[in-house]
Simulated assay, not measured.
Amino acid sequence: MKKTLWVILMGMILVLGACGGGGDDETGDGGGGDNGDTANEEGNNNDEETADVDVAAAEEVYEQSCASCHGGDMGGNVGPALTDVGANYSSEEIAKIIHEGKGDMPAQNVEEADAQLLGDWLSTMK
């Protein structure tokens, strides 16, 4: 159990480290802010979509509910990678998948607000 928590913690450090600065990749997914909390304010190619997303809260819900299957860095584990899920699904579609499941993914027991928060956040991953 301690090893799993350590892996999740390290994965979150990598995810949060990737959120700050850079922005020199083609898609601009690296964000443009100084850190993960301000990456949504400017420099992101999805400003309109992420303006109201609480990234820190979404990452916390992701860590608690999703990371064990989709990986701490969203690169996939038992479940598929979510690094570009927003290119295929809208926020509403993602929230629906979370609640109803899809394919091998079972329905998840998360609050509606948390599912929508995750949907809003994951829909920016393009």
Rank of each mutant, 00 (worst) to 15 (best):
A39F: 12
V110I: 13
S90V: 03
L118D: 01
P80T: 10
C66V: 08
N77D: 15
E26I: 13
A115H: 05
G43D: 05
A81N: 13
D25F: 01
G75E: 12
T4M: 07
N77C: 10
N44Y: 10
K126L: 09
G20R: 09
T4I: 11
G32H: 06
G76E: 10
A81C: 06
D54Q: 00
N109Y: 05
C19G: 06
G28N: 07
N44E: 02
P106N: 12
E111P: 03
Q116L: 05
T83K: 14
W121C: 02
G17I: 01
I13C: 12
G33P: 05
E111K: 07
V85R: 03
E93W: 00
P106C: 04
G72P: 11
L5S: 09
T4V: 12
L9I: 09
G79V: 07
E48R: 03
L82F: 13
Q116N: 13
N77M: 14
G103P: 03
G86T: 03
S65N: 15
G22I: 04
A56T: 06
E59S: 00
G79N: 13
N77W: 09
G43F: 07
L117R: 04
A51Q: 02
I98R: 04
V53G: 02
H99M: 13
M10H: 07
E49W: 00
G75Q: 11
N35D: 15
A67W: 12
G119S: 02
D84G: 10
V55L: 09
G36H: 14
D84P: 02
Q116V: 05
S65H: 15
T50I: 14
T4R: 10
T38L: 04
I8E: 09
C69H: 15
L122R: 07
N40G: 15
I98P: 06
G86K: 05
L9M: 09
V15Y: 10
N46P: 02
G43E: 04
A18V: 10
T83L: 15
Q108C: 05
A115F: 05
L122V: 01
A81S: 15
E48T: 06
E59D: 02
Q64V: 04
I94H: 03
A107L: 02
E112N: 04
H70T: 15
G76C: 08
Q64L: 08
I94V: 00
E100K: 14
S90W: 04
E112D: 14
L118T: 04
G23Y: 08
V15A: 14
E100A: 13
H70M: 13
L16M: 14
S91N: 03
A51D: 04
D47C: 00
E112R: 03
I8A: 08
V53R: 01
E48D: 12
T38G: 13
D84E: 15
D104A: 14
Y89A: 06
E42N: 11
E41H: 08
D29S: 14
G75H: 08
G20S: 13
G72Q: 04
Y62H: 01
V7H: 12
P80K: 11
M125I: 02
E59L: 10
C69K: 12
